[in-house]
Amino acid sequence: MALVERKHVDGDVGRLSEATAGDFIALLKPRVMSLVVFTAFVGMVLAPATPNPLLAVIAILAIAVGAGAAGALNMWYDADIDAKMARTAGRPLPRGRVAPGEALGFGLFLSAFSVMTLGLMANWLAASLLAFTIFFYVVIYTMWLKRSTPQNIVIGGAAGALPPVIGWAAITGSVTLESLVLFLIIFLWTPPHFWALALFKTGDYARAGIPMMPNVAGEEHTKRQIFAYAVLVAASGVLPSVLGFAGMAYGAVAAVLGGGFVWYSWHVLRMDEGDRAMGPAKALFAYSLVYLFAIFAALLVDGMISRIGA
């Protein structure tokens, strides 16, 4: 964080911050937060219990704020590398809008409050899972894995995969096979999603010194890994139907969506080595976002229909 800290040490001592509420909201990574809210909500709907609607909304809010707090702590720690990448250079810390201390305090404060709120309003198992998710994302992924191994997002993906488990636990007070299948879908989806991005952002990651798979093991190896994971993603997508907690219609939708994932990954695998435009990798990245949203939307619809029918 040398670049950012120097600015504040040299020039801004004693000055009031110019950060607005919008800058602090940006620290929460609202787009990531929206995915967390959605997947946690699906976990809640699929859970075999009917929650008090207000307590369910509070639980969702607590999970969202906890995820946002983890994002703020990630931006606090990663300000130095964020400044070097075009994709992240506009974040509040690299731009000097928010001081590192402000981001750290904000992230720690919201982490504590979100965990306490979830514990008091839902249950302490869900709160413990939220605390673990924040810890895993900030300490295990951000501080340790991200800068040290090309398997960073494989292991770190566990943090992003936990929200539906937390949602499920908030309603039932337990962690079951069904919720772990939801975890598995996101966990297996994460590597091909980020490696597709890393393929066409190799320069960015190289400048920042982050050992993403294409930078360390090469493009060909990454493409093979993406394809292997795509097959696993497609298989995991139909598991809810196979295990009986989603209907056959969901299974058919998941099979089609999974087939699409494999198809896009196949095009990445066949992508010419000299293809610098990386069209297939960009297409897979875009499709992977659609896939995750669609598969959870399908689970949501299936869950809603089951509830109405019950």
Binding site: R15, L16, S17, E18, A19, T20, A21, F24
Partner: peptide, 9 residues
């Protein structure tokens, strides 16, 4: 600008 940002916060 600083005062306005503080009020906003």
């Amino acid at each position: 600008k600083e005062l306005k940002a503080r009020r906003n916060r």
